[in-house]
């Protein structure tokens, strides 16, 4: 069953807008997981838990560099799916329900991966539209330029909404099943998830920021300082 109590339409609109933000308009990075999953959590009345889901997804998204024509995961719509599924049963707490959190992160990863493909299909679709309009463009038709832009933006909005719907259709029942069947302790589950997310983030920082001198040394020094400070605070 879909989360009808969430009011599906606003959620799909959110997924559409955040999907649009990734590339087409306005690239203000409201589609980044740390924002998008928090917003999705807020839609479900679980803003704090949405933030925690978003933090885990942001760690994964750090690895993704959205370079031009390459295919990369689409985290905008995916984070809406992850934020909604991951905060299921949080009951206002900061930390999400462990099983829902795991399924939410998995759902977001799968949706982001599929979203990468839908972006490729979207670009191919616009290319097809552009191909049949090349003569009009060569004639300097403003109408053609505008229409292609509007078609592209509209198709991207619909892409984001459809992706969000598909992700929720598949992940919502899975999270319900997992929450009921989960046997591992909450602390162990959260620990495993955090190790995974933080490990990906650490490797991403190492790989992404490697191009400049001393960055890796600064990272290691920061890790040492951060670990000591956490130890002292705990």
């Amino acid at each position: 069953m879909l989360p009808l109590t969430l009011d599906l339409l606003p959620v799909l609109v959110l997924g559409a807008i955040l999907g649009l933000d990734v590339v087409s308009f306005p690239q203000a990075m409201i589609s980044r997981p740390i924002v998008a999953a928090t917003l999705a959590g807020a839609f479900a009345g679980q803003t704090a838990a949405g933030l925690v889901v978003g933090v885990a997804l942001e760690c994964l998204a750090l690895e993704t560099l959205p370079f031009g024509a390459s295919r990369y995961p689409e985290w905008g719509s995916a984070s809406v799916v992850g934020g909604l599924v991951g905060t299921r049963g949080a009951d206002g707490a900061l930390l999400p329900e462990p099983a829902a959190w795991v399924i939410g992160v998995m759902a977001a990863i799968a949706t982001a991966w599929l979203g990468g493909w839908t972006m490729v299909w979207h670009r191919r679709l616009i290319a097809r539209w552009a191909r049949v309009r090349l003569d009009a463009m060569a004639g300097g038709s403003m109408r053609t330029v505008m229409s292609l832009q509007v078609y592209g933006l509209t198709a991207d909005l619909l892409r984001g909404a459809a992706l969000t719907l598909l992700g929720l259709l598949l992940a919502w029942p899975a999270s319900g099943w997992a929450v009921n069947a989960w046997r591992l302790g909450a602390t162990e589950t959260r620990g495993a998830l955090v190790i995974g997310a933080a490990g990906v983030a650490a490797s991403a920082v190492w790989k992404v920021l490697h191009g400049y001198s001393v960055t890796r040394r600064l990272f290691v020094a920061g890790l040492a300082v951060g670990t000591v400070l956490v130890g002292l605070r705990g």
Binding site: R216, L218, G226, V230
Partner: peptide, 30 residues
């Protein structure tokens, strides 16, 4: 990039600690 590397180093232990519940740092899970 240099600033980000330093922030990353400090941020990850703090973020991980809070995400597991923020308990004592000598607990087994920490």
């Amino acid at each position: 990039a240099r600033g980000a590397a330093l922030v990353a180093g400090v941020a990850l232990p703090f973020a991980a600690h809070r995400a597991i519940g923020g308990g004592a740092s000598l607990e087994p899970v920490s």
